[in-house]
């Protein structure tokens, strides 16, 4: 136990504003305020992998690391769509996942928000539409915000979630952030 405490003390608090570009410190503050304003409570997210290469999942997982500290912002991932405010969906939607995605959407209570993640979720990406792929997420369920990138950086994902919970028209695209996407 002493080793754990010593390591925690040595590590310190690493949570920070996203690294680059610099103006994104602003986003985290706005995100937190927007969550409280729109939902008045913690935002809950259900993540659905509808057929991705798993690159997007790696970056969504990164949102939980101490640098981005998603839970510290009042946002967390939940185990059932029935507990979720927001669906975070990666694609391309495989034909084999289309029905499961539709059912997950139907099981999510209103009001609900859908964020399509990655180039594949936004427009089918390198896989496109084929005998095996339905392509973009919006071919299956209504999408509120698209976060492009291959995969999008955690910072871009944060900005997408922010865009989704700030009321505006459907189909809004978040500009890509930084490199890596």
């Amino acid at each position: 136990m002493l080793h754990i405490l010593r390591q925690i003390a040595r590590t310190g608090i690493r949570t920070e504003a996203p690294p680059s570009p610099a103006d994104e410190a602003h986003d985290i503050g706005r995100l937190s305020a927007a969550v409280r304003r729109v939902l008045g409570r913690a935002l809950t997210i259900r993540m659905v992998d509808a057929g991705s290469c798993n690159g997007c999942e790696l970056e969504i997982n990164a949102l939980g690391n101490p640098y981005y500290n998603l839970e510290g912002l009042g946002i967390r991932f939940v185990a059932s769509p029935r507990h979720a405010d927001l669906l975070l969906v990666t694609g391309p939607v495989s034909k084999h996942m289309a029905i499961a995605l539709r059912r997950t959407y139907d099981a999510t209570p209103e009001p609900k928000i859908v964020v399509a993640v990655g180039d594949c979720g936004c427009h089918g990406g390198i896989f496109g539409e084929s005998y095996a792929c339905v392509g973009r997420v919006s071919n299956v369920i209504p999408v509120d915000v698209e976060v492009p990138g291959c995969p999008p950086t955690p910072t871009a994902l944060l900005r997408g979630i922010l865009a989704a919970i700030t009321p505006r028209g459907p189909g809004a695209t978040v500009p890509p952030v930084g490199g890596g996407g």
Binding site: D49, G51, C53, N54, S94, A100, A132, C133, C150
Partner: peptide
């Protein structure tokens, strides 16, 4: 398994030796 079947092998046949590395690099992102 097979829920994530994206038709990758068929997709390769519409690509070339010059750009196939992009698809190969997205078979399993990790």
């Amino acid at each position: 398994l097979s829920y994530a079947h994206k038709g990758i092998e068929k997709r390769f046949e519409a690509m070339t030796l010059a750009d196939g590395h992009r698809l190969a690099g997205r078979v399993s992102g990790d």
